[in-house]
Design a protein around this nucleic acid. Structure first.
Length: 847
DNA sequence: GGAGTTCGCATACC
DNA sequence: ACAGGTATGCGAACTCC
């Protein structure tokens, strides 16, 4: 029977039936029921004809082409001759409809080289992406579906999987596909899907989970407990039987039953999003390994199947019918840049984003657990899921907004990196420009692109070390993006000759050659789409200023991120729309506008103190704020296109230091020794901004970071170094008296490679080797933590010790290599030789 | 075998 | 493999005599 109903797709998958492609979407209907909608997909790709050639010969050839593979035969089903655009040029193209998407690549190859065909395109876009692109059935949007469905399920959710619904897609034709076994309320075959153009937000049901295990190695050792939280569920499942366990603990017989029960709970919850934290890399593969070990099913999916792991740099765990989200991956890709958190542990990230401080659990207790310990552990486990759930709620608006803008499903949007986001955003909007998509670079092309060296980047103005008062900072808003838009910078608009309708790029050097290039003024899709992003970002930034809701903030951020990454995309070797010239030219423009603006500011009589890429800091010189803002306005009038110079802030004080190892001495206050990317400012409103100093570097010990932080703040607030000097003396005294906690002396770094792959054996590598010796698994990405102790040996690495080793810390090392170097440059600005002062104190004391 | 330099590495800024 | 270049600064490893 035909039905008409509302539908919001959340999760996408596809399957083959009789050799053809179908897309299976799981989402909610108007009544909030979880349903499945199946839609057909007609696979196709394009042949772009060479200028001046007709289609006849090609069409003849197409009739004969076929590909036999995996038990199916793919043929050309129909063709269409179209006027399309490719890279902004009008082109004649043949759209070739074939039996199966998977054979697109082989079909394109089978057609072979023909004089008439210049390009073959769009056979390399993943099926779901191409489906969404062509049929415009976008994730989390509202649709009206007309379709053939089944009768309502009679049973309640909990027992649902034992009483599968029956399908009736025309005389049982579809049995065997497995749709009848799906654990959903209803399943439909779509006859039409129309957009409802509703601006209503979709609120998903979310369930978070977390496991606690005996081992940190996936699959080694038992899973002790599994917690689930969300959508009314708050539970720990465990096989550990203890007296008076908390009510939320559900005790089962053994590990195998615990896994089975977990699956039951997940399926029964019938949520839209199942989320974990680092679950792609740990929880889900661990569950899979233990389920395999016990030979039980990890049937989390609505099809009764276990997760599949899509290969990639990190395997992605896909579960049928529910969007499995690993929040860590989304946080890593989208937020980490803007976070203070140094490790991206759930603990830190949750602390920063939602202000929840988790209670910790001492894992060394694992060896000898008593009733009390188990209770703590259950509580800890439940809390992890609860925090993951809260984080999911917090981050959901951003996920939803990315889905909306980029038009990719939740599963992908939470795992893709920036380059992919930018590219998908372009792909999904190409139809508006009648554009055929460019292909991905081939293997050889990839290597060739990577071989080419870097291109010249932005300028950094070298500051003169000193303590300054009354500063102003200007910066360009989204500088790279606004340049790309204002000068239509892209591969397709690139010209080597100016036909009189071009923007002229500043001359720049690329691969040893001076280049003068131009960009056609006729806007292409690249800059048009970016212009939209920048415009929307501006609009949403304004809306957020009025209404500080999470949604508004997410919107604003999402567009900002997308705009920022677009420049990098053009220089990224894996990009479909890669253009070295465009990327290099953008940077040439950046240098020009930054330089010209600095000149303009200096020309007005201001002294420039610093500038990095898109910012300029200068002295107020007693001028009023109004005068400076008027000047800013005047600069803006002269800026082209959508470029905009903004007031970053007014600062009452600022300190810039010399590079390390440069004793300014008599040359204090002289140019030529200033450190770039290292400064501290105090805004007129009282906010402190510290950049580049050890304070903000996670690979320096806490004692050093904390001391430097306090010294900087004190100096900025006091306006002199007197009090700060006392502080340093005090810390040095405590260090010498061994009155410093070891915890404050630990040095942390993150291994970038596996231990065996290091060429040089630095202290962190020595520490890593010690950890391995102690039985800890260590690989690229692991954080190592060590301190420098007393001992013999030339290298610092010879005195590396792990926490817990009973060795005295090396006073000299921490003094000469940590504490003093970090404050030396700061005091040098005031003409104070901190080392001499500290040494003098010591002499005094010795007397 | 010590001084000076280069290189490898981690992390920051924008 | 999953945006780009610029920059600081440590410590190991090399070069040179």
């Amino acid at each position: 029977m035909e039905k008409v109903f509302e539908f919001v797709p959340v999760d996408y998958d596809y399957f083959d039936f009789e050799g053809r492609n179908y897309v299976k979407m799981i989402g909610r209907d108007g009544a909030g029921r979880k349903i499945c909608v199946v839609d057909s997909y007609d696979a196709n790709f394009y042949l772009i004809l060479r200028e001046g050639y007709g289609a006849d010969e090609v069409l003849k050839r197409l009739k004969t082409v076929e590909v036999k593979k995996a038990g199916r035969v793919t043929r050309v089903l129909k063709t269409e001759i179209l006027d399309k655009n490719f890279l902004g040029e009008k082109r004649n193209a043949i759209r070739v409809w074939i039996t199966n998407h998977k054979d697109g690549h082989d079909m394109a190859s089978a057609i072979g080289d023909m004089e008439e065909i210049e390009f073959r395109r769009e056979y390399d876009i993943p099926l779901v992406t191409k489906y969404i692109k062509e049929k415009k059935v976008e994730p989390l949007q509202h649709y009206c579906v007309r379709g053939q469905g089944t009768k309502s399920r009679e049973s309640e959710v909990g027992a649902a999987r034992h009483t599968p619904n029956t399908l009736n897609f025309g005389a049982g034709r579809w049995s065997g596909v497995g749709l009848d076994k799906l654990d959903v309320e209803k399943c439909f075959f779509a006859e039409s899907i129309e957009s409802l153009k509703k601006e209503k937000e979709f609120t998903p049901k979310i369930l978070a989970y977390d496991i606690e295990t005996m081992s940190r190695e996936v699959g080694e050792g038992e899973i002790l407990m599994i917690s689930v939280f969300g959508n009314g569920i708050r539970k720990v499942i465990s096989w550990k039987k203890i007296d008076d366990a908390p009510g939320y603990v559900e005790v089962v017989e053994d590990e195998a039953m615990m896994i089975e029960r977990f699956c039951e709970v997940v399926r029964g919850a019938s949520v839209d999003i199942l989320c974990g934290y680092f679950s792609d890399g740990f929880d889900l593969p661990y569950l899979k390994a233990r389920a395999d070990f016990h030979k039980v099913k990890l049937d989390l999916g609505i099809d009764g199947k276990g997760p599949s792991f899509k290969r990639g740099r990190i395997a992605s765990g896909k579960i049928a019918g529910v969007a499995h989200v690993d929040l860590y991956r989304f946080v890593d890709a989208v937020f980490s840049q803007y976070l203070q958190s140094e490790t991206l542990s759930l603990d830190e990230v949750a602390g920063e984003l939602i202000g929840i401080k988790k209670e910790s659990f001492d894992f060394s207790r694992l060896g000898n657990m008593r009733g009390r310990d188990w209770k703590d552990f259950f509580s800890y486990n439940l809390q992890d899921s609860a925090v993951t759930y809260e984080l999911a709620l917090k981050v959901w608006p951003d996920v939803a907004e990315f889905c909306r803008i980029i038009k990719e499903p939740v599963f992908d949007v939470t795992r893709d990196r920036m380059a992919t986001h930018v590219e998908n955003h372009i792909l999904h909007n190409l139809d508006r420009f009648d554009e055929i998509a460019e292909r991905r670079p081939g293997h050889a092309e990839n290597i060739e692109r990577k071989m080419k060296g870097k291109f010249e980047g932005a300028d950094v103005f070298e500051p003169t070390p000193g303590f300054y008062e009354n500063l102003v900072m200007f910066d360009f808003t989204s500088m790279h993006a606004s340049l790309i838009v204002s000068f239509n910078i892209s591969g397709q608009s690139l010209r080597f000759v100016d036909d009189g309708n071009c923007y002229v790029a500043p001359e720049f050097e690329l691969d040893g050659k001076e280049l003068q290039i131009y960009f056609d003024k006729k806007p292409g899709f690249f800059s048009t789409l970016l212009a939209e992003v920048v415009k929307k970002r501006k609009k949403f930034k304004g809306e957020y200023a009025i209404d500080k809701s999470a949604m508004k903030k997410a919107r604003s951020n999402a567009y900002k991120l997308l705009a920022n990454a677009t420049f990098g995309y053009q220089g990224f070797f894996g990009a479909r729309y890669y253009s070295r010239e465009a990327a290099a030219a953008t940077l040439a423009f950046v240098r020009k506008f930054h330089g010209d603006t600095m000149e303009k500011i200096a020309g007005e009589g201001y002294k420039i103190i610093y500038g990095d890429t898109d910012s300029i800091a200068f002295l107020k010189e007693g001028k009023s704020k109004k005068k400076i803002l008027d000047f800013l306005k005047r600069i803006n009038v002269g800026l082209p296109g959508i470029m905009e110079l903004d007031l970053e802030d007014f600062y009452s004080r600022g300190i810039f230091v010399a590079k390390r190892g440069v004793k300014t001495g008599a040359r204090r206050g002289v140019a030529g020794v200033g450190a770039k990317k290292k400064y501290a400012l105090l805004s007129e409103k009282g906010n402190i901004k510290i950049r580049g100093f050890e304070t903000v570097r996670r690979d320096w010990c806490g004692l050093t970071r904390d001391l430097q932080d306090r010294v900087l703040k004190m100096i900025l607030k006091d306006g002199n170094e007197k009090e700060a000097l006392k502080l340093v003396k005090d810390v040095v005294g405590r260090l010498r008296a061994r009155d410093v906690e070891l915890e404050d002396l630990m040095i942390r770094t993150k291994l970038k490679r596996d231990v065996g792959d290091y060429v040089a054996e630095g202290p962190h590598v020595v520490a890593a080797k010690k950890m391995i010796e102690a039985g800890v698994s260590v690989s690229a990405g692991t954080f190592v933590e060590y301190f420098i102790g007393e001992g013999i040996g030339k290298r610092v690495g010879d005195r590396v010790y792990l926490a817990g080793e009973r060795v005295k810390y090396d006073i000299e090392y921490y003094l000469k290599k940590q504490v003093l170097p970090a404050v030396e440059g700061i005091f040098d600005v005031f003409g104070v030789d901190i080392e001499a002062v500290v040494e003098g104190e010591r002499q005094k004391k010795l007397f």
